[in-house]
Design a protein around this nucleic acid. Structure first.
Lengths: 361, 361
DNA sequence: GTGAAAGCGCTAACAC
DNA sequence: GTGTTAGCGCTTTCAC
């Protein structure tokens, strides 16, 4: 099939056919009340039958603005992974919907952690009116610089004091508390904390973890903390290393569902049962969390609201408003990994484990 | 912080400062050789120090083209799920990289399955030069119409005869064969096929499944086929229904890793062990597939190549080339869900197989 | 209510 | 090598 010339109908054509001027067509299509109802209808019908759509490029140029917002997923320079954390994807989907429903286009980019000032270029080249940054960021300084160069920017993450850009995130500290309290209330004594506290969000979750322990008059044991990264393969490596050396725990609080799920997989490969031997709480409450076996207890961050808040935040930044911090409602969703074992019922006919209680090396 | 006026530097400013005309600035920045090396450098430096970026909107308007390609993820009107299948996400990430590295911007949209002609609008409004459609599509007709209205379009999926648009996909039939052969060669007799054959891709995988059975002189048992949907929650519901009624199988070939993983979870919740009692093969080879326990055998589709092929295909379509079908290399990645149990060592009392006969082809 | 005209920021002939 | 000029497709005064 050889393509016919891409018939780019434009306003002139419609004007000619309708016997009016371009300005009238423009007005009619924009729904201006200044134009006679009959001619308006005629023009609109004509446009539809010609399958005409206004050229947004020209429109933007003329109006001196754009209706596009950029969404950026940082890619770790280290890993070749397509997209790191499933959570970001879920958020991405919500953002797409939030933007579309508000009439914005979404420009999607992945950016190397080194070339953060490409972000600025996106805005200065008029490609987008602002940027939403999703994801782990150890880039406070770079982002601050951007914001100060007045690049409208909104970040998913944790608020750092004096941040010159807007931040949207869950109540990480509370999340950490909720998770840990639940484990403590289940009689768990040695709770492993999994997450890299160099990331602000994780640091806050750790504070919550500590809060809960202190509340319960427990000691915070440094040996029960491990800096597991968010990226899947790296997380698995780090975890299996860890489990080789550390076995003396009866619960895990993982800073992402991915980490939690990997931990569960590795534990069961070793013959340690969840929740019988180890309770587990994750973070994010991914759809997958309710799909696995056993289903995963997790700290839920409201994605749709997150998306809406991020969109609001860039727009506000673009208007020149002061940066704002949005903390979203955060709660614990309880599932099977934190339920007292009903050994009597479901485990009765299960085959004997090779090593019922001991973990293999 | 009240924002200073968004300082939109433009070529005129640079021209004035450099004491040259706008055309020279334009040429210099475009790297034209026609401009004196010294002035070129002066201009480029000036532009950099002013953090100037060419306005792509104006550029596109003038050049009568755009460097943006739209990527569309259909959203099922039925479910509120953010993003349905993790596989699409992975592909999305690859696409982002492929586009960026080739100098294209990516416009990301989700589109209701009903409003497929929004796709056309994207192109006709000059937002993008073409559209890549990712995902399940029972929309052959609608897509064909689009292609015939000369909307450059490339689809991830399975080729239907006489398709007027380009299609990129794995070798679904071969994939089905590989999976099924492996299960047969492992002595599996009653292989459950999970996937909705109304989708062309799944239909082909089913053909492969049938091929392999016929090859091995087995019967194709209609009772061993179930139309499990791709979307996570729906899949789980369908699967748990299914498992309530159907238990007489010793292997599963699932048309996505998500379905496979859900099946494994449900089976183990029931006390049926994988791979001891049931072998499982998935499709997609998601990163997660190697993360779970037991690790999942799966049919791998090469994502990076898929992305590259899709980009090529839209560009070709836009040039007016005839639609093309690209079939990607497809292979089986073996992992623990299809490994013979090491009974001798750990599973001494594993249940006897119903049909020990080991039929390899 | 409608048209004429100017111009958004840029590029590409075409001159010199 | 560089400047001049004419638009790309649209919106929006400003007239009528």
């Amino acid at each position: 099939m050889s393509a016919p010339p891409p018939d780019r109908t434009q306003m002139v054509d419609i004007a000619r056919l309708a016997g009016v001027s371009v300005s009238t067509v423009s007005r009619a299509l924009a729904g201006s009340t200044l134009v006679n109802e009959k001619t308006r209808k005629r023009i609109v019908d004509l446009a539809n039958s010609l399958r005409f759509s206004v050229n947004v490029g020209a429109q933007n140029l003329r109006r001196g603005q754009t209706q596009t917002i950029a969404v950026v997923l940082p890619k770790a320079s280290t890993d070749a992974q397509p997209v790191s954390d499933p959570f970001f994807i879920a958020l991405l989907g919500e953002l797409a919907d939030a933007l579309t429903s508000r009439g914005f286009d979404m420009l999607f980019t992945r950016i190397g952690e080194d070339s953060l000032d490409d972000l600025e270029r996106i805005v200065r080249s008029g490609r987008a009116l602002g940027v939403i940054v999703i994801g782990q960021w150890q880039h406070h300084y770079a982002l601050s610089t951007l914001a100060n160069h007045n690049t409208p920017i909104a970040v998913w993450g944790a608020a750092l004091p004096g941040t010159p850009y807007s931040v949207v995130g869950s109540d990480n500290r509370l999340g950490g508390q909720l998770a840990t309290r639940r484990l403590l209330s289940g009689g768990r004594n040695r709770i492993l904390f999994l997450g890299d506290t160099r990331l602000p969000e994780v640091a806050l979750r750790f504070e919550g973890y500590r809060d809960a322990l202190v509340e319960a008059k427990r000691m915070v044991n440094p040996g029960l903390t491990a800096a597991i990264p968010f990226e899947a393969a790296a997380a698995r490596r780090a975890l299996s290393d860890l489990l080789r050396h550390t076995q003396d725990f009866d619960a895990i609080f993982a800073c992402s569902d991915l980490i939690a799920m990997t931990a569960v997989a590795l534990l069961s490969a070793e013959g340690r049962r969840v929740p019988d031997d180890v309770w587990v709480v994750g973070y994010d409450d991914l759809p997958l969390a309710s799909q696995m076996h056993p289903t995963l207890t997790s700290v839920k961050q409201p994605l749709a609201e997150a998306a809406a808040a991020l969109v609001e935040a860039v727009l506000a930044a673009q208007r020149g408003d002061a940066p704002q911090v949005t903390v979203l409602e955060t709660k614990l969703v309880e599932r099977e990994t934190t339920v007292p074992t009903r050994q009597a019922t479901s485990r009765a006919k299960a085959p004997a484990r090779k090593a019922p209680t001991k973990s293999k090396r």
